[in-house]
Nucleic acid binder design. Sequence first.
DNA 1: CAAGTTTATGCGCATTACTCATAAACCTGC
DNA 2: GCAGGTTTATGAGTAATGCGCATAAACTTG
Lengths: 311, 311
Amino acid sequence: MSNAHKLALMRHAYTPTLPELQAFVQAAKTGTATRAAAALGLTQSAISRALTTLEARLGVALFHRIRQRLVLSDAGRALLPEAERMLADLDRAALTVMSFGGHRDVLRLAVLPTFAALWLIPRLSRFAAIAPEVTFDMTATLAPLDFERDPRDVAILRAQRHLRGAQVDILAEERLVVVAAPALLPKAGMLEDVDLARLPLLQQATRPNLWLDWFLNAGLDPITILRGARFEQFGMVLAAARAGLGLALVPELFVGPDLASGALRLASARSMASDTPYVLSYPQRSLDIAAFVRFRDWILTDAPPPVTGNK
Amino acid sequence: MSNAHKLALMRHAYTPTLPELQAFVQAAKTGTATRAAAALGLTQSAISRALTTLEARLGVALFHRIRQRLVLSDAGRALLPEAERMLADLDRAALTVMSFGGHRDVLRLAVLPTFAALWLIPRLSRFAAIAPEVTFDMTATLAPLDFERDPRDVAILRAQRHLRGAQVDILAEERLVVVAAPALLPKAGMLEDVDLARLPLLQQATRPNLWLDWFLNAGLDPITILRGARFEQFGMVLAAARAGLGLALVPELFVGPDLASGALRLASARSMASDTPYVLSYPQRSLDIAAFVRFRDWILTDAPPPVTGNK
DNA sequence: CAAGTTTATGCGCATTACTCATAAACCTGC
DNA sequence: GCAGGTTTATGAGTAATGCGCATAAACTTG
């Protein structure tokens, strides 16, 4: 018997099984084998048996049996967060992989949520038309990825031109414009800054300085500038603007559809540049993926610029 | 049938089993079911069967079968790092929990490796005498822990007096002394700095500035100061010093045993203070653990100070 | 004290994991 | 081109595991 074989047998003996871990986690969370059984669709004796075999194989008590309750021991307390995470990881991994079904090439992207919703996803049909065999696994991110640890293929976010461990291509500079529902604006023309300041200003929680920057030279007090409902994502801000709740200062990239439909109008003739562009960032290893290379080439050259102004 | 029951059945259907994951990872790494079988102590048909059931339950091909080789598909490529990590996590969690066996209370500590080896562990017998039911799970660390993510109970390291998300108690200020094997030193008296500089100076890789700081006012060139064998941990530095390889500039905390035994002698009459103390850091939740509270009280008040000089 | 709850366990069955044997496909050296 | 050796996939059957049913014992509650 080879050493690998011996090691595999030993590991098989002490490694908990999934049914055991599932029983353990539910018993730990509910405090009784009976309730754990209900949660797992098993009988109480199945749970009891699983806990017994788990404790036997690990050689340690995971629970104190105290007056018909299962109370975690120190060992059980140590195992619980790790078991929960492992079961969650397994579930997530399974669901992630299952989403690959039916497609040959899958790109895994992490994208700023509103950028994804308002800029990228609406354009994906053009990419799908030229590369129908490629599909996407898209997740939201607000921070750069560490591609040495993260299995994803590419990130799209606002970032400096250089990121550690990644190549960076500029997608678009960010320019911010002021928009509002037409009902909130005069019938014709644009508003001056002093006029803008009289209206409610919708705030973006992750970009709290935007209105301060906009009104930098307007001589207004910060209280005036910062009052207004606060929302966590630009998508929410835009929804509030469409609802007539106030003025929205948002990336020009995001307002094409609402301007085109008339749901929103520009409220000021000027715009404001941001110092941080939207970028595509990806690890060297992604260049070996044909689907990624096609996507990158498409997004860098073929994606048309955003639409601005009423048509 | 309750909703929880229905969900459990669905999840049971799509969740990979451990044998399936193990077969998948080995097949992915070796490229053939035959070699995976050898690694796992199973037959080739067991591997083939496991891969088939895994792909069926996930509804996606994890391998391309290309001329009698198993080549990972995109889905397989996505799953592999996660599956490897999950199996490793499970193994580590099992081994960690198994080490709790036989003890009622376990403290999980992360400690600087040399501090553990030379200061803490030698004193643990005194703590064990007053708290025999407490045992330890001790790991090495060089960096502060993020206690929101890390399940461990306490860290002992050199750090500033304030750490995010942790309470910090000062254990000891660090003072550094110069020691050497007696054979390397004159029969009596201490050396002046100019005399020290003529001897080989043992370097500590993670503390490269120590000798620079020591000789700050000695007017020596850096080349003289920095030459010498380099070691990654103080334990290694001390071993080299005992071997007569040169002078060691090390924390006074660590040299008690060697000074007491005569294996090392002080080579200079002066010492040098460091600006960063050794601290105990721990999250609020650890205060609910009786064993931890006893340990903290012991180490802060009862642990005797280090021994300095020949006795 | 009765009725209802819990856990642990004997017994037996259902399901899963695996082996053995083998067909089919592929590879390599001659 | 062929023999010998490799691989995978699969039918058939066995071993191991997971689980349900029933129940004793212990505990809880009104």
